[in-house]
């Protein structure tokens, strides 16, 4: 059974969409990730146009990060003040990101740029997950308990405009979080991701936020970035496909909840290593598409007068 997507202007198998959303949702629930970094490339693989894949992915992430934030919020693990400061940067970043995106669509380089960005992102994510999980597995085998430093002091603490973030027990300049938010905003708008994968380490290592507050705060922040990106794409690139988003959201929300349950029952590291391999597989596929000479070196796109 297939469904016609009004904005993508093609029909796709409804079960393919539901299983795609379900699997990505499952992985995101299990690992506490947004899943946008897998959703966008997989949508492109099944034939959804790049611009629709990016814009619709952002819309889907709104739903999955709301689901995730609720749990953290109830436990008081969201630093709203820090989230708000990050958002100031993200606001301007996503406006710039959508502008870059529409320029790239206009000059016909969007597919290439998205591919290269995704290759870099997925390779980075995949390798770091693989290294991290194999380290944990190795340490477990050697029965070692590694203690991690919780607080880092670096240049971020020496800049002006210092503000006290009570919840995170921090007294730092607002400049680094604004810059981080700005970069995440650009990436979110151009790639259709929440950016948790970059945001979380940046919050821990650059800002020195306590790990317990990091996930909730980043999820909270991601709701607003992706919401903004959705609106910006809907109004400038006209690429948000509500029908596609609906099926992805429905299946990913269910998948995410199942993923959360599964995460409690399964051992994390082995699955994390498996996810790393999936991520690297997707990265390899993207790289091959860029490197292997295509069968058809010409590609055709209909010019829609939307700008």
């Amino acid at each position: 059974m297939s469904i016609y997507l009004p904005i993508a202007e093609l029909s796709v198998n409804i079960f393919l969409l539901l299983s795609l959303g379900g699997v990505v949702g499952f992985l995101s629930g299990m690992f506490g990730l947004g899943g946008g970094f897998l959703m966008t490339p997989l949508l492109i693989f099944i034939g959804i146009p790049t611009n629709v894949a990016v814009a619709t992915s952002a819309n889907q992430i709104v739903a999955s990060s709301i689901s995730g934030t609720l749990g953290h919020w109830r436990q008081g693990l969201v630093d709203f003040k820090m989230g708000g400061v990050l958002l100031i940067g993200a606001f301007f970043g996503s406006i710039l990101g959508v502008w870059i995106f529409s320029r790239l669509v206009a000059i016909g380089q969007i597919d290439t740029v998205i591919s290269i960005l995704y290759f870099a992102l997925l390779t980075g994510i995949g390798l770091s997950m693989l290294i991290e999980s194999s380290k944990v597995i190795r340490d477990r085998i050697r029965r070692k308990n590694v203690k991690r430093k919780i607080h880092y002091h670096n240049w971020a603490h020496r800049l002006p405009f210092k503000v006290r973030f009570y919840k995170s027990k921090l007294y730092i300049s607002v400049i680094p979080p604004i810059i981080i938010g700005f970069v995440i905003g650009i990436l979110s708008a151009t790639m259709g991701i929440g950016g948790a994968f970059i945001l979380i380490p940046a919050m821990i290592y650059f800002l020195g936020m306590p790990t317990s507050k990091v996930i909730g705060t980043s999820l909270f922040q991601i709701i607003f970035i992706t919401a903004l990106v959705t609106i910006l794409h809907a109004t400038t690139t006209f690429a948000v496909d509500a029908v596609l988003a609906f099926f992805l959201i429905l299946s990913s929300v269910i998948g995410a909840q199942v993923g959360v349950l599964a995460a409690n029952k399964l051992r994390g590291e082995e699955i994390r290593a498996l996810l790393a391999i999936i991520v690297l597989g997707v990265a390899t596929k993207i790289a091959l598409d860029l490197l292997v000479e295509p069968n058809e070196i010409f590609n055709l796109s209909v010019i829609r007068l939307v700008f």
Partner: peptide, 13 residues
């Protein structure tokens, strides 16, 4: 589109 995402995300949880 956002409101739909919010409703499904929230109610799902």
């Amino acid at each position: 589109s956002l409101i739909i995402a919010i409703i499904i995300g929230w109610s799902g949880a």
